[in-house]
Design a protein around this nucleic acid. Structure first.
Lengths: 193, 193
DNA sequence: TCTTTGTGTGTGAACATTCACTTACTTTAT
DNA sequence: ATAAAGTAAGTGAATGTTCACACACAAAGA
Protein backbone atom coordinates (compact mmCIF):
# COMPACT_ATOMS: atom_id res chain seq x y z
CA UNK A 1 0.00 0.00 0.00
CA UNK A 2 3.07 2.26 0.13
CA UNK A 3 3.52 4.95 -2.42
CA UNK A 4 6.71 6.05 -4.17
CA UNK A 5 7.55 9.75 -4.47
CA UNK A 6 6.97 9.58 -8.20
CA UNK A 7 3.58 8.00 -7.68
CA UNK A 8 2.69 10.78 -5.29
CA UNK A 9 3.64 13.33 -7.93
CA UNK A 10 1.32 11.62 -10.36
CA UNK A 11 -1.47 11.54 -7.84
CA UNK A 12 -1.07 15.23 -7.24
CA UNK A 13 -1.02 15.91 -10.95
CA UNK A 14 -4.23 13.93 -11.23
CA UNK A 15 -5.76 16.06 -8.50
CA UNK A 16 -4.70 19.22 -10.25
CA UNK A 17 -6.27 17.99 -13.47
CA UNK A 18 -9.52 17.27 -11.67
CA UNK A 19 -9.64 20.85 -10.46
CA UNK A 20 -8.86 22.46 -13.76
CA UNK A 21 -10.77 20.22 -16.15
CA UNK A 22 -13.03 17.97 -14.14
CA UNK A 23 -13.47 14.24 -14.34
CA UNK A 24 -13.48 14.23 -18.13
CA UNK A 25 -10.17 16.06 -18.10
CA UNK A 26 -8.48 13.34 -16.12
CA UNK A 27 -6.98 11.39 -19.01
CA UNK A 28 -3.66 9.61 -19.38
CA UNK A 29 -2.70 12.06 -22.09
CA UNK A 30 -3.32 15.10 -19.91
CA UNK A 31 -1.67 13.39 -17.00
CA UNK A 32 1.45 12.79 -19.06
CA UNK A 33 1.45 16.39 -20.24
CA UNK A 34 1.09 17.61 -16.68
CA UNK A 35 4.01 15.39 -15.65
CA UNK A 36 5.99 16.54 -18.69
CA UNK A 37 6.73 13.08 -19.93
CA UNK A 38 5.16 10.61 -22.33
CA UNK A 39 1.93 8.73 -21.85
CA UNK A 40 3.63 5.39 -21.69
CA UNK A 41 5.82 6.57 -18.82
CA UNK A 42 2.70 6.62 -16.65
CA UNK A 43 2.51 2.87 -16.93
CA UNK A 44 5.93 2.54 -15.36
CA UNK A 45 4.35 3.71 -12.12
CA UNK A 46 0.78 2.46 -12.30
CA UNK A 47 -0.66 -0.48 -14.13
CA UNK A 48 -3.91 1.26 -15.01
CA UNK A 49 -5.83 4.48 -14.76
CA UNK A 50 -8.14 2.82 -12.29
CA UNK A 51 -5.18 2.16 -10.03
CA UNK A 52 -4.23 5.82 -10.13
CA UNK A 53 -7.68 6.94 -9.08
CA UNK A 54 -7.94 4.36 -6.33
CA UNK A 55 -4.49 5.31 -5.06
CA UNK A 56 -5.50 8.95 -5.06
CA UNK A 57 -8.67 8.29 -3.12
CA UNK A 58 -6.91 6.09 -0.60
CA UNK A 59 -4.13 8.60 -0.14
CA UNK A 60 -6.76 11.25 0.43
CA UNK A 61 -8.61 9.11 2.92
CA UNK A 62 -5.42 8.47 4.87
CA UNK A 63 -4.53 12.16 4.92
CA UNK A 64 -7.94 13.15 6.20
CA UNK A 65 -7.96 10.34 8.72
CA UNK A 66 -4.64 11.44 10.18
CA UNK A 67 -5.59 15.08 10.37
CA UNK A 68 -8.90 14.42 12.02
CA UNK A 69 -7.32 12.18 14.61
CA UNK A 70 -5.73 15.09 16.42
CA UNK A 71 -9.06 16.52 17.38
CA UNK A 72 -9.94 14.23 20.26
CA UNK A 73 -7.57 16.12 22.54
CA UNK A 74 -10.19 18.78 23.04
CA UNK A 75 -12.66 18.31 25.85
CA UNK A 76 -15.80 20.03 24.70
CA UNK A 77 -17.88 18.25 22.03
CA UNK A 78 -18.89 21.58 20.58
CA UNK A 79 -15.25 22.57 20.33
CA UNK A 80 -14.43 19.24 18.71
CA UNK A 81 -17.26 19.76 16.26
CA UNK A 82 -15.96 23.17 15.31
CA UNK A 83 -12.39 21.94 15.09
CA UNK A 84 -13.34 19.05 12.85
CA UNK A 85 -14.94 21.26 10.26
CA UNK A 86 -12.33 23.95 10.59
CA UNK A 87 -9.74 21.35 9.75
CA UNK A 88 -11.81 20.07 6.84
CA UNK A 89 -12.25 23.51 5.36
CA UNK A 90 -8.57 24.25 5.85
CA UNK A 91 -7.59 21.04 4.12
CA UNK A 92 -9.85 21.57 1.14
CA UNK A 93 -8.84 25.18 0.81
CA UNK A 94 -5.26 23.98 0.41
CA UNK A 95 -6.27 21.10 -1.83
CA UNK A 96 -9.34 22.21 -3.74
CA UNK A 97 -8.75 19.60 -6.42
CA UNK A 98 -9.70 16.88 -4.02
CA UNK A 99 -13.15 18.40 -3.65
CA UNK A 100 -13.81 17.33 -7.19
CA UNK A 101 -12.59 13.85 -6.44
CA UNK A 102 -14.61 13.35 -3.32
CA UNK A 103 -17.83 14.90 -4.40
CA UNK A 104 -18.09 13.95 -8.02
CA UNK A 105 -20.23 10.97 -8.72
CA UNK A 106 -18.81 10.85 -12.19
CA UNK A 107 -15.83 8.88 -11.05
CA UNK A 108 -18.01 6.42 -9.30
CA UNK A 109 -19.61 4.48 -12.04
CA UNK A 110 -16.38 3.67 -13.77
CA UNK A 111 -15.41 0.75 -11.58
CA UNK A 112 -16.23 -1.19 -8.48
CA UNK A 113 -12.85 -0.47 -6.88
CA UNK A 114 -13.28 3.27 -7.28
CA UNK A 115 -16.78 2.98 -5.92
CA UNK A 116 -15.51 1.30 -2.79
CA UNK A 117 -12.72 3.83 -2.36
CA UNK A 118 -15.21 6.68 -2.43
CA UNK A 119 -17.46 5.01 0.09
CA UNK A 120 -14.46 4.42 2.32
CA UNK A 121 -13.72 8.11 2.12
CA UNK A 122 -17.21 9.00 3.27
CA UNK A 123 -16.90 6.59 6.14
CA UNK A 124 -13.69 8.19 7.37
CA UNK A 125 -15.56 11.40 7.92
CA UNK A 126 -18.44 9.65 9.64
CA UNK A 127 -16.04 7.70 11.81
CA UNK A 128 -14.72 10.91 13.34
CA UNK A 129 -18.03 12.69 13.51
CA UNK A 130 -19.99 9.93 15.18
CA UNK A 131 -18.24 9.90 18.60
CA UNK A 132 -18.41 13.67 18.79
CA UNK A 133 -22.14 13.69 18.16
CA UNK A 134 -22.78 10.87 20.58
CA UNK A 135 -20.70 12.48 23.29
CA UNK A 136 -22.52 15.75 22.74
CA UNK A 137 -25.85 14.03 23.03
CA UNK A 138 -24.87 12.19 26.17
CA UNK A 139 -23.72 15.40 27.80
CA UNK A 140 -27.00 17.00 26.77
CA UNK A 141 -25.27 19.60 24.66
CA UNK A 142 -26.74 18.39 21.40
CA UNK A 143 -30.39 17.61 21.00
CA UNK A 144 -31.66 14.13 21.74
CA UNK A 145 -34.85 14.71 19.79
CA UNK A 146 -33.44 12.76 16.87
CA UNK A 147 -30.91 9.95 16.67
CA UNK A 148 -27.17 10.38 16.18
CA UNK A 149 -27.45 8.82 12.74
CA UNK A 150 -30.07 11.30 11.71
CA UNK A 151 -28.01 14.16 13.05
CA UNK A 152 -24.98 12.98 11.14
CA UNK A 153 -27.00 12.64 7.98
CA UNK A 154 -28.11 16.24 8.26
CA UNK A 155 -24.67 17.51 9.10
CA UNK A 156 -22.96 15.59 6.32
CA UNK A 157 -25.58 16.62 3.79
CA UNK A 158 -25.24 20.26 4.73
CA UNK A 159 -21.48 20.03 4.49
CA UNK A 160 -21.57 18.25 1.18
CA UNK A 161 -23.87 20.85 -0.31
CA UNK A 162 -21.56 23.59 0.92
CA UNK A 163 -18.67 21.92 -0.88
CA UNK A 164 -20.80 21.57 -3.99
CA UNK A 165 -21.63 25.28 -3.97
CA UNK A 166 -18.00 26.15 -3.47
CA UNK A 167 -17.03 24.02 -6.41
CA UNK A 168 -19.57 25.37 -8.86
CA UNK A 169 -18.44 28.83 -7.76
CA UNK A 170 -14.99 27.75 -8.99
CA UNK A 171 -13.62 27.99 -5.45
CA UNK A 172 -13.95 31.74 -5.64
CA UNK A 173 -15.22 32.46 -2.14
CA UNK A 174 -13.43 31.95 1.16
CA UNK A 175 -14.56 28.49 2.19
CA UNK A 176 -13.17 28.86 5.69
CA UNK A 177 -15.31 31.90 6.37
CA UNK A 178 -18.49 30.75 4.64
CA UNK A 179 -17.99 27.26 6.00
CA UNK A 180 -17.52 28.70 9.46
CA UNK A 181 -20.88 30.41 9.21
CA UNK A 182 -22.41 27.14 8.10
CA UNK A 183 -20.98 25.34 11.12
CA UNK A 184 -22.36 28.05 13.37
CA UNK A 185 -25.81 27.59 11.83
CA UNK A 186 -25.70 23.87 12.32
CA UNK A 187 -24.57 24.19 15.91
CA UNK A 188 -27.27 26.71 16.64
CA UNK A 189 -29.87 24.33 15.43
CA UNK A 190 -28.64 21.06 16.85
CA UNK A 191 -27.84 22.37 20.28
CA UNK A 192 -30.39 21.71 22.96
CA UNK A 193 -32.57 24.68 23.61
CA UNK B 1 -39.36 25.31 -26.54
CA UNK B 2 -42.15 22.85 -27.32
CA UNK B 3 -41.38 19.19 -27.54
CA UNK B 4 -42.65 16.73 -30.12
CA UNK B 5 -43.97 13.33 -29.03
CA UNK B 6 -40.99 11.66 -30.65
CA UNK B 7 -38.60 13.95 -28.77
CA UNK B 8 -40.33 13.04 -25.56
CA UNK B 9 -39.83 9.38 -26.34
CA UNK B 10 -36.14 10.01 -26.82
CA UNK B 11 -35.92 11.97 -23.58
CA UNK B 12 -37.53 9.12 -21.73
CA UNK B 13 -35.20 6.63 -23.35
CA UNK B 14 -32.30 8.80 -22.24
CA UNK B 15 -33.62 8.77 -18.70
CA UNK B 16 -33.96 5.02 -18.77
CA UNK B 17 -30.37 4.71 -19.93
CA UNK B 18 -29.20 6.93 -17.11
CA UNK B 19 -30.85 4.61 -14.61
CA UNK B 20 -29.52 1.40 -16.05
CA UNK B 21 -26.03 2.43 -17.07
CA UNK B 22 -25.30 5.82 -15.58
CA UNK B 23 -23.93 8.90 -17.24
CA UNK B 24 -21.32 6.95 -19.19
CA UNK B 25 -24.06 4.74 -20.60
CA UNK B 26 -25.86 7.67 -22.12
CA UNK B 27 -24.41 7.48 -25.62
CA UNK B 28 -25.99 8.09 -29.00
CA UNK B 29 -25.40 4.47 -29.84
CA UNK B 30 -27.24 3.19 -26.77
CA UNK B 31 -29.93 5.77 -27.27
CA UNK B 32 -30.51 4.55 -30.80
CA UNK B 33 -30.59 0.95 -29.64
CA UNK B 34 -33.12 1.84 -26.97
CA UNK B 35 -35.26 3.61 -29.55
CA UNK B 36 -34.81 0.70 -31.95
CA UNK B 37 -33.59 2.79 -34.83
CA UNK B 38 -30.26 3.93 -36.19
CA UNK B 39 -27.91 6.42 -34.57
CA UNK B 40 -28.37 8.94 -37.31
CA UNK B 41 -32.12 8.98 -36.80
CA UNK B 42 -31.52 10.72 -33.49
CA UNK B 43 -30.29 13.73 -35.36
CA UNK B 44 -33.63 14.08 -37.10
CA UNK B 45 -35.04 15.11 -33.74
CA UNK B 46 -32.16 16.80 -31.98
CA UNK B 47 -29.16 18.60 -33.40
CA UNK B 48 -26.76 17.34 -30.78
CA UNK B 49 -26.40 15.19 -27.71
CA UNK B 50 -26.08 18.32 -25.65
CA UNK B 51 -29.50 19.43 -26.86
CA UNK B 52 -31.00 16.14 -25.75
CA UNK B 53 -29.63 16.48 -22.24
CA UNK B 54 -30.68 20.11 -21.94
CA UNK B 55 -34.17 19.25 -23.20
CA UNK B 56 -34.38 16.43 -20.67
CA UNK B 57 -33.36 18.69 -17.80
CA UNK B 58 -35.76 21.43 -18.83
CA UNK B 59 -38.59 18.99 -19.22
CA UNK B 60 -37.80 17.68 -15.78
CA UNK B 61 -37.71 21.17 -14.32
CA UNK B 62 -41.09 21.97 -15.81
CA UNK B 63 -42.62 18.75 -14.51
CA UNK B 64 -41.37 19.37 -11.01
CA UNK B 65 -42.40 22.99 -11.12
CA UNK B 66 -45.93 22.08 -12.08
CA UNK B 67 -46.27 19.38 -9.48
CA UNK B 68 -44.96 21.53 -6.69
CA UNK B 69 -47.32 24.36 -7.58
CA UNK B 70 -50.33 22.49 -6.25
CA UNK B 71 -49.01 22.57 -2.73
CA UNK B 72 -49.86 26.12 -1.79
CA UNK B 73 -53.50 25.20 -1.29
CA UNK B 74 -52.65 23.86 2.14
CA UNK B 75 -52.78 26.24 5.04
CA UNK B 76 -50.22 24.96 7.51
CA UNK B 77 -46.52 25.54 6.64
CA UNK B 78 -45.60 22.26 8.27
CA UNK B 79 -48.18 20.49 6.14
CA UNK B 80 -46.86 22.23 3.06
CA UNK B 81 -43.35 21.20 3.97
CA UNK B 82 -44.38 17.59 4.33
CA UNK B 83 -46.41 17.67 1.15
CA UNK B 84 -43.55 19.15 -0.83
CA UNK B 85 -41.18 16.35 0.05
CA UNK B 86 -43.83 13.69 -0.21
CA UNK B 87 -44.45 14.83 -3.75
CA UNK B 88 -40.71 14.86 -4.48
CA UNK B 89 -40.19 11.35 -3.18
CA UNK B 90 -43.23 10.15 -5.07
CA UNK B 91 -41.97 11.69 -8.27
CA UNK B 92 -38.50 10.25 -8.00
CA UNK B 93 -39.82 6.86 -7.02
CA UNK B 94 -41.76 6.83 -10.27
CA UNK B 95 -38.85 8.28 -12.24
CA UNK B 96 -35.68 7.07 -10.55
CA UNK B 97 -33.66 7.74 -13.68
CA UNK B 98 -34.00 11.44 -13.15
CA UNK B 99 -32.22 11.13 -9.83
CA UNK B 100 -29.11 10.24 -11.78
CA UNK B 101 -29.62 13.24 -14.01
CA UNK B 102 -30.23 15.77 -11.27
CA UNK B 103 -27.69 14.67 -8.77
CA UNK B 104 -24.81 13.56 -10.89
CA UNK B 105 -22.10 16.11 -11.35
CA UNK B 106 -20.78 14.04 -14.19
CA UNK B 107 -23.15 15.64 -16.62
CA UNK B 108 -22.31 19.08 -15.45
CA UNK B 109 -18.86 19.60 -16.76
CA UNK B 110 -19.70 18.67 -20.29
CA UNK B 111 -21.10 22.01 -21.34
CA UNK B 112 -22.16 25.40 -20.17
CA UNK B 113 -25.74 24.89 -21.31
CA UNK B 114 -26.10 21.69 -19.32
CA UNK B 115 -24.57 23.41 -16.34
CA UNK B 116 -27.16 26.15 -16.47
CA UNK B 117 -30.00 23.67 -16.90
CA UNK B 118 -28.95 21.84 -13.75
CA UNK B 119 -28.70 25.06 -11.77
CA UNK B 120 -32.14 26.04 -13.00
CA UNK B 121 -33.41 22.73 -11.72
CA UNK B 122 -32.01 23.39 -8.26
CA UNK B 123 -33.60 26.80 -8.24
CA UNK B 124 -37.04 25.39 -8.99
CA UNK B 125 -36.88 23.44 -5.76
CA UNK B 126 -35.66 26.44 -3.80
CA UNK B 127 -38.34 28.61 -5.32
CA UNK B 128 -41.04 26.45 -3.80
CA UNK B 129 -39.30 25.81 -0.52
CA UNK B 130 -38.45 29.42 0.28
CA UNK B 131 -41.98 30.80 0.84
CA UNK B 132 -42.87 27.80 2.98
CA UNK B 133 -39.88 28.32 5.23
CA UNK B 134 -40.46 32.04 5.48
CA UNK B 135 -44.12 31.60 6.28
CA UNK B 136 -43.24 29.04 8.91
CA UNK B 137 -40.75 31.39 10.48
CA UNK B 138 -43.17 34.29 10.49
CA UNK B 139 -45.80 32.19 12.17
CA UNK B 140 -43.24 31.09 14.72
CA UNK B 141 -43.58 27.46 13.77
CA UNK B 142 -40.03 27.14 12.45
CA UNK B 143 -37.07 28.42 14.37
CA UNK B 144 -35.90 31.98 13.86
CA UNK B 145 -32.48 31.22 15.31
CA UNK B 146 -30.99 31.03 11.84
CA UNK B 147 -31.97 32.67 8.56
CA UNK B 148 -34.30 31.20 5.98
CA UNK B 149 -31.38 30.81 3.57
CA UNK B 150 -29.44 28.82 6.11
CA UNK B 151 -32.44 26.65 6.84
CA UNK B 152 -32.95 25.98 3.17
CA UNK B 153 -29.31 25.09 2.75
CA UNK B 154 -29.57 22.51 5.51
CA UNK B 155 -32.82 21.09 4.21
CA UNK B 156 -31.64 20.87 0.62
CA UNK B 157 -28.33 19.33 1.64
CA UNK B 158 -30.05 16.71 3.74
CA UNK B 159 -32.44 15.92 0.92
CA UNK B 160 -29.66 15.71 -1.65
CA UNK B 161 -27.68 13.32 0.49
CA UNK B 162 -30.74 11.15 0.94
CA UNK B 163 -31.11 10.93 -2.82
CA UNK B 164 -27.44 10.11 -3.15
CA UNK B 165 -27.74 7.26 -0.68
CA UNK B 166 -30.80 5.96 -2.45
CA UNK B 167 -28.96 6.00 -5.72
CA UNK B 168 -25.83 4.20 -4.56
CA UNK B 169 -28.17 1.63 -3.01
CA UNK B 170 -29.45 1.13 -6.57
CA UNK B 171 -32.90 2.43 -5.55
CA UNK B 172 -33.40 -0.70 -3.51
CA UNK B 173 -35.09 0.78 -0.46
CA UNK B 174 -38.47 2.49 -0.22
CA UNK B 175 -37.59 6.14 -0.69
CA UNK B 176 -41.04 7.32 0.35
CA UNK B 177 -40.74 5.63 3.73
CA UNK B 178 -37.08 6.43 4.44
CA UNK B 179 -37.55 9.89 3.03
CA UNK B 180 -40.58 10.35 5.22
CA UNK B 181 -38.47 9.60 8.27
CA UNK B 182 -35.91 12.09 7.07
CA UNK B 183 -38.55 14.79 6.72
CA UNK B 184 -39.77 14.03 10.23
CA UNK B 185 -36.22 14.41 11.56
CA UNK B 186 -35.78 17.72 9.84
CA UNK B 187 -39.11 19.01 11.08
CA UNK B 188 -38.31 17.93 14.61
CA UNK B 189 -35.13 19.89 14.54
CA UNK B 190 -36.22 23.04 12.77
CA UNK B 191 -39.43 23.50 14.67
CA UNK B 192 -39.35 26.02 17.46
CA UNK B 193 -38.99 24.38 20.81
C1' DT C 1 -57.38 12.10 -61.45
C1' DC C 2 -52.77 11.86 -62.27
C1' DT C 3 -48.38 14.02 -61.32
C1' DT C 4 -45.36 16.90 -59.02
C1' DT C 5 -43.33 18.65 -55.06
C1' DG C 6 -42.37 18.87 -50.29
C1' DT C 7 -41.86 16.89 -45.61
C1' DG C 8 -40.96 13.72 -41.88
C1' DT C 9 -38.47 9.90 -40.65
C1' DG C 10 -35.63 6.41 -41.38
C1' DT C 11 -30.82 3.83 -43.07
C1' DG C 12 -25.78 2.43 -43.50
C1' DA C 13 -21.36 3.90 -44.22
C1' DA C 14 -17.88 6.89 -43.19
C1' DC C 15 -15.82 10.80 -40.62
C1' DA C 16 -12.21 12.71 -37.39
C1' DT C 17 -11.08 12.42 -32.75
C1' DT C 18 -10.20 10.56 -28.35
C1' DC C 19 -9.57 6.96 -25.21
C1' DA C 20 -6.67 3.52 -22.29
C1' DC C 21 -3.17 0.70 -23.15
C1' DT C 22 1.00 -2.02 -25.49
C1' DT C 23 5.34 -3.08 -27.68
C1' DA C 24 10.05 -2.42 -28.76
C1' DC C 25 13.69 0.33 -27.97
C1' DT C 26 16.86 3.85 -25.50
C1' DT C 27 18.66 6.58 -21.72
C1' DT C 28 20.18 7.09 -17.05
C1' DA C 29 21.83 5.95 -12.49
C1' DT C 30 23.68 2.90 -9.22
C1' DA D 1 26.22 -4.71 -15.82
C1' DT D 2 21.89 -4.40 -14.26
C1' DA D 3 17.57 -2.28 -13.32
C1' DA D 4 14.73 1.61 -13.27
C1' DA D 5 12.60 5.18 -15.94
C1' DG D 6 11.97 7.20 -20.03
C1' DT D 7 10.33 7.46 -25.42
C1' DA D 8 8.14 6.83 -30.23
C1' DA D 9 4.84 4.81 -32.49
C1' DG D 10 1.42 2.13 -32.64
C1' DT D 11 -3.24 -0.74 -31.40
C1' DG D 12 -8.41 -1.46 -31.34
C1' DA D 13 -12.43 0.29 -29.58
C1' DA D 14 -15.54 3.95 -28.72
C1' DT D 15 -17.15 8.53 -29.21
C1' DG D 16 -20.42 12.24 -31.54
C1' DT D 17 -21.54 13.72 -35.95
C1' DT D 18 -22.31 14.05 -41.09
C1' DC D 19 -23.22 12.24 -45.47
C1' DA D 20 -25.97 10.67 -49.54
C1' DC D 21 -29.82 8.26 -50.10
C1' DA D 22 -34.68 5.84 -49.50
C1' DC D 23 -39.39 5.31 -48.38
C1' DA D 24 -44.16 6.78 -47.03
C1' DC D 25 -47.43 10.12 -47.17
C1' DA D 26 -49.80 14.64 -47.88
C1' DA D 27 -50.71 18.90 -50.35
C1' DA D 28 -51.02 21.27 -54.63
C1' DG D 29 -51.24 21.96 -59.72
C1' DA D 30 -52.30 20.21 -64.18
Amino acid sequence: MDITPRQLEIIEAAGKLLTTSGVSGLTIKNLAKEMQFSESAIYRHFTSKEEIIVAMLNYLADSIDKRLSDINDLSDPEEKFRALFKEQFRFFRLNPHFVVAVFSDGLMEESQLINEAILKLMNVKTKHLMPIIIEGQQKGIFTNDITAEELIHMVMGTFKLQMYKWRIASFQFDISRIGGNMVQSILTIIKSR
